[in-house]
Amino acid sequence: MSSFQIGDRVTAEYKTGTYFGEVVELTTSMKAAVRILAVKEHPTQGDLHNPMDPNVPFFHQRRALANQEIALMPISTIRLYAGNVPEYQDSLKRALSAQISKLSDMEAWSRRSLQELDQLQKDYFPEKN
C-alpha cells in the first residue's frame, strides 16, 4: 500500500497548508489519515483556480487544520519526519506570521515595482506625460 506505518511522524500537505502529523490509518493506496500535531505552513487564502486575483466571486478564507484533527492526506504529499514537532499553538502563530510577512513583502514589492514601471512608462512614452 505505502511505505508508511501507523504511528509514523510525517509532514503532509492538505489543500494549501503543510502540517506535522502522525499517521493514524492507511486508508487506501492513495491516502492516509493523519492526525495534526502542528502547522508547518499556513494555508493560502483566495481562489486557488485564480491565484493572486482579489476580484473573484468568492475569495476563500482558509483556516489551518486544528490540533489533533484527523485529515485524509494524499500519500504523494506525505514525507517521513524525524525532527522535533513544535507545539501546535506556537507552530500556528509562527506559520500565520510567516504568511502575513510574505504577503506584506509582496505588497511592498508590488508598490515599488509599480513606481518603477510608472517611471519606465514615462521614459518609454514621453509624449503621454
Rank of each mutant, 00 (worst) to 15 (best):
M1S: 13
Q5V: 15
Q5K: 15
D8W: 04
R9D: 15
V10N: 10
Y14M: 00
K15W: 11
K15P: 01
G17L: 03
G21S: 12
V24E: 15
E25C: 15
T28I: 06
S29K: 06
M30P: 00
M30Y: 04
A33I: 05
A33D: 05
V34Y: 08
R35N: 06
I36P: 10
L37F: 04
H42E: 12
H42P: 06
T44W: 02
Q45T: 01
Q45A: 02
D47V: 11
L48F: 01
N50L: 15
N55E: 11
V56S: 02
F58W: 05
F59T: 03
Q61A: 12
A64F: 03
L65Q: 03
A66F: 02
E69G: 00
I70P: 00
I75Y: 05
S76I: 03
R79H: 08
L80I: 08
A82E: 07
A82L: 05
A82D: 09
V85L: 05
V85Q: 09
P86F: 11
E87I: 14
E87L: 14
Q89Y: 02
L92T: 11
A95L: 05
A95H: 07
L96S: 10
L96H: 11
S101R: 13
S101C: 05
K102E: 08
S104M: 15
D105L: 12
M106S: 06
M106Y: 14
A108P: 11
S110N: 14
R111C: 09
R111P: 01
R112P: 02
R112M: 06
Q115W: 11
E116C: 11
L117D: 14
D118I: 11
K122P: 00
D123K: 05
Y124E: 09
P126V: 09
P126H: 00
P126E: 02
E127S: 05
E127F: 05
K128W: 07
